[in-house]
């Protein structure tokens, strides 16, 4: 079985939540091998077998977390040389994309960005992309070199079977002379118990129909009842109801959750571009002609302020 490398990102000292989906995707293509760049003495590598890594390639360097993606690129380049994989999978995060970009140039490979699915076609890795906000499904493959694929967070369902996770540790020397250096990491200031929007499996978003920042609490209450992340349309962000970090759409975050609930969102094409690959879409809006209803699996024409509280009661009643 051919080897498939997965870059494991570290977030605030822990394995980033993207690792599960990446290892699941890798397990469909071949033997999943986790690649981790970390400071010496980490215990993170030991956790990766449970997530499906057959092997762990642990590159130890004091520069991990100090230099911007350079340690990760060097770790992957070293693993590619040592293991001759068929493919390398990374999260389509800012760090994942930069790492993948540099690796593609360094290994003379080719890059497939923001895949929503991966599969094997014979020996060839084929990635499916959702283009123009889901208007087109494009399958692409790499010819003549290593396939490097970044995968949209939240797009891959399920988990890989736990595997042995045999750890191989190598010392890595990183040349930082042509690298950006990290000065300070600021975790998102909202210490929220809610899931992160990016990669969330459930999202509840609010739009202009909420009418005010105070009323936006309704969105948060439904999100909490569903265990969902909170999103917003550009209109709600521009009106100041919520910070820009919540914006879903063409100029915000693209989500691909199992459930997307749109409250008081009309569904402009730029918003739909960021959410219409959701598996199930629910919309509540008082305007019967709102375009969001054209793509909703379940739409309610009505007042969010009377319907949503009832819905929360129904959900809570069923949870008990």
């Amino acid at each position: 079985m051919s080897k498939v490398l997965v870059l494991i990102e570290v977030s605030q000292g822990a394995i980033a939540n993207t690792a599960v989906g990446l290892l699941a995707a890798a397990s469909r293509l071949g033997e999943p091998i986790a690649v981790l760049a970390a400071k010496p003495g980490t215990d993170l590598a030991a956790q990766l077998g449970a997530l499906g890594a057959a092997q762990v390639y642990l590159a130890e360097t004091d520069q991990a977390g100090e230099l911007l993606v350079t340690p990760e690129v060097d770790a992957l380049a070293s693993a590619v040389e040592a293991l001759q994989p068929a493919a390398v999978l990374l999260a389509n995060s800012p760090d994942g994309r930069d790492t993948a970009a540099r690796l593609a140039v360094r290994t003379a490979g080719a890059l497939l960005v923001d895949a929503v699915d991966v599969k094997l076609d014979g020996q060839r890795v084929v990635a499916t992309h959702s283009v123009f906000g889901g208007a087109y499904a494009v399958d692409a493959a790499v010819e003549g070199g290593l396939a490097i694929v970044t995968i949209r967070q939240g797009a891959i369902e399920g988990k890989a079977e736990p595997a042995s996770g045999t750890v191989t540790t190598i010392p890595l020397t990183v040349d930082g002379s042509a690298s950006a250096a990290i000065d300070e990491v600021n975790a998102a200031t909202e210490a929220s118990s809610r899931p992160e929007l990016r990669g969330a499996t459930r999202v509840v978003s609010g739009g202009r129909g909420l009418g005010s920042g105070e009323a936006f609490e309704l969105v948060e209450q439904l999100a909490d009842a569903l265990g969902a992340a909170v999103g917003a349309s550009r209109a709600a962000v521009d009106a100041g109801y919520v910070p820009q970090t919540h914006q879903v759409g063409q100029t915000g975050i693209t989500v691909s959750p199992q459930l997307y609930v749109a409250l008081g969102i009309s569904g402009a094409i730029q918003h739909r571009a960021g959410m219409q690959t959701a598996k199930t879409i629910v919309a509540i809006n008082k305007d019967e002609d709102a375009p969001i209803f054209d793509i909703a699996d379940f739409g309610i024409v009505g007042d969010i302020f009377t319907i949503v509280p009832k819905l929360i009661d129904e959900i809570n009643a069923r949870a008990h």
Binding site: A110, G134, A137, V138, V142, E143, G144
Partner: peptide
């Protein structure tokens, strides 16, 4: 370059039905 990414197929998704 020796390696390149190539489009295998492109299909317009059926408009998501209401």
């Amino acid at each position: 370059a020796a390696a390149q990414s190539v489009v295998v197929s492109a299909t317009a998704r059926p408009a998501r039905a209401a």
